[in-house]
Structure formats: structure tokens, C-alpha cells
Amino acid sequence: MSTLAELRAGDTLNDIVLSPVSRLDLIKYAGASGDYNPIHTIDDEAKKAGLPGIIAHGMWTMGNLAKLFTPYHEEGFLQDYSIRFKGMVFLNDVITLRAELMEKNDKQLKFNVAALNQDGREVLVGTAVFAQY
């Protein structure tokens, strides 16, 4: 693994492909986050809400996406992390996490970040500003 400092604009971090989304993933996230909205864990409740089935917590995907930057904790930290939730994530979806360096300023690296489903559709997009020490 190289350092973030070596990246140039247009470079990407290595994509991370998650295991297919399972019910247990979402039950665990509900417990760990305290978000027990039943549309994320109980089929009937999701259907009552007009959904075809349970959907992942947006924050589950956003939490996962941040791990692209975890290995670089000695170099800096995520100063700003902004996300727009664009699409729903369903059970068995295979999510790919992606980050591309857009700009390099003095002590700041600005990335475009996204999570895509197996059809290549963006379910979550945003930016991450990594502040370097």
C-alpha cells in the first residue's frame, strides 16, 4: 500500500467490493448504531412502507465507504465527509466502494467518493476531504 501523499489528481484508491448485503449485516448495524427503524430489518414493515423489501441503512453504506481511508490514519484524517443518498440498497446487492482524488491543495486532498451497486448505479455519492498532518 502506498501513501495518499503520492497520489495525483485523477488517481483512485483501490476499490473495495463488499460481500452481498445480508440481513445480519443490517441487524448488526441497527444494534451498533441504535437505528432500529424496522424498514431495515423486518420484511413486513418494509412492505408496509411501500418498499419491495428491507433496505440498508444509508449510514451503513456511508460507514462502509469511509474505510477506504482508514489505512492512512498516520498521514491525516477525514476532515469533511459529505454524502448524498441517491438510491436504495437491497438485500444481496453487491456494493463497490470508490474514491478518486480530484484536487490536491496545501495539506488537503479532496476526493470524490461513491458507492455503486452491481448494476453500476450510484447509490451514494459525495466528497471526502482528507487533511494531512
Binding site: G58, L78, S82
Partner: peptide, 16 residues
């Protein structure tokens, strides 16, 4: 309790 959509989320940190 129901029917809310989480549209956007951002975090700003001074340090971890």
C-alpha cells in the same frame, strides 16, 4: 417514527 428519508449527511472534524 416512519416515512422519513435520509437525504444527505455530512461530517466535519477538527480531529478524530
Amino acid at each position: 417514527a416512519k416515512g422519513l428519508i435520509h437525504g444527505e449527511q455530512n461530517y466535519h472534524y477538527e480531529r478524530p
